[in-house]
Amino acid sequence: MNLNKQQELLSKYLQGTATPEESAWVEKWYCSFDSLQPASSEQPIDQAVGEVMMSGILKKIRRGKVIQLWQQVGSAAAILLIVLFGSWYYYQLNSSDSPITYSYITAAPGQHIKVLLPDSSTLWLNEQTTVRYTKSSFGEKAREIWLEEGEAYFEVKPNKQLPFIVNSGPLKTRVLGTAFNIKKAASYDEVQVSVTHGRVAVSTAGRSLAHLTRGNQLTYHKSSGQSTTRPINPAYTTAWQQGSVELQNASFQELSEAFYSLYNTRLKAGKKEIEEHTYTITLARSQPQAQAVAVIAAIHELSYTIENGTIELY
């Protein structure tokens, strides 16, 4: 019987589609290995037949006959068997049916949490914020966190071999060691990344958006996919950590950033001249939002309205 016919019968036998006569031939062929003498190492064997033999070894053959088959097939098949078995064994060692498990951390309304991560990096969570990270491998195989919702500040322990990655919706922020703030509020169509020191790389869907350094902020609009960068005062964008912030001759944009940090509510200028005003004021989270707005409006004798989560001064 030629090799092609042998290969066909072996395949059918392993798939369970062989006839009784064909199965008897394969089993007779299988048993013949007990009586075969070792062949010359120079004897070639077809690669396809070798692959079928390998499959048969893993499924059918007892340990005692593997050695005799090894001697029989010669060096070409021996090399092939090593490669195939090695690949299978590596796969078995590195695959698992167990699903990936995550650790979740949530800061409830009015709560602020400081967390020491397994790699000794420090994480602060603003209220109503949830993050997750891989429970078993963080700091060993990877350092990756998902900001599900809210705002978090990171102080990352340097590790050049293991980048620290934060996923915040469509954005991926990658660092080696630095401090930065990410805000992803459900009520606004934007994700903000602000750097207080060091450098971060921000991307989306594999497309680089910016490399940010200290005192710079990227704002990404989820609906349009557009992003802008601009300089900021880090103290204003991270005011929520300290619970208060003191503004000295701050621009309206800086005031708006500090207010957003403390109250998760945007300030909007209803008139152009309002954006040209400066503001000297101390804002504290312990102060009710309505009271803080009233004080801001009184500085320049302004009025205001509150609608759809935005406060407009006019």
Rank of each mutant, 00 (worst) to 15 (best):
S194T: 15
P99S: 02
V73G: 00
E140R: 15
K172Q: 14
P170F: 04
T280K: 07
L267T: 11
S121I: 04
T228R: 03
L267P: 05
S187V: 08
T178R: 07
P234E: 14
Q217I: 05
L80M: 04
S55Y: 09
S261G: 05
F252K: 00
V131G: 09
E127D: 14
T134K: 15
Q289A: 06
Q6C: 09
L262D: 00
V131I: 14
N167A: 02
I311D: 01
A76H: 04
A297Y: 03
A297K: 03
Y263E: 07
T106A: 08
I145E: 04
R285I: 10
A77Y: 01
F154N: 05
M54H: 13
G198R: 08
P20R: 11
S223L: 14
S256W: 04
K5E: 11
K135N: 13
K160M: 12
W25G: 07
T305E: 11
G110C: 08
S224D: 08
N4Y: 01
K12L: 12
S75F: 05
G64Q: 09
Y260D: 10
S87P: 05
P234H: 15
L117E: 09
T173G: 00
V26D: 13
L36C: 03
Y260T: 08
S41A: 07
H211E: 12
Q47K: 12
T282R: 15
L9Q: 03
A107K: 05
V193Y: 01
I67V: 10
L123N: 04
K5M: 12
E27S: 03
I306M: 15
F85M: 02
S136D: 14
A258C: 01
G198F: 13
K183H: 00
T101A: 10
Q242V: 06
T178I: 06
P99Y: 02
H211C: 13
T19V: 06
L3G: 06
F180C: 00
K28V: 01
Y30H: 14
E140N: 11
L3W: 10
S251I: 06
I281W: 06
I274K: 05
S35F: 05
G64P: 00
V200H: 13
W70K: 05
H277V: 10
W70Q: 04
Y220D: 03
S227Y: 02
T130A: 01
R199Q: 13
N2P: 14
A39Q: 15
P231R: 05
T178L: 01
Q241P: 08
R143M: 07
K28H: 02
L93A: 10
E155Q: 15
A235G: 01
V49Q: 01
I281R: 06
K141V: 10
Y153S: 06
Q92P: 10
A210P: 13
A185T: 12
T173C: 02
S40E: 07
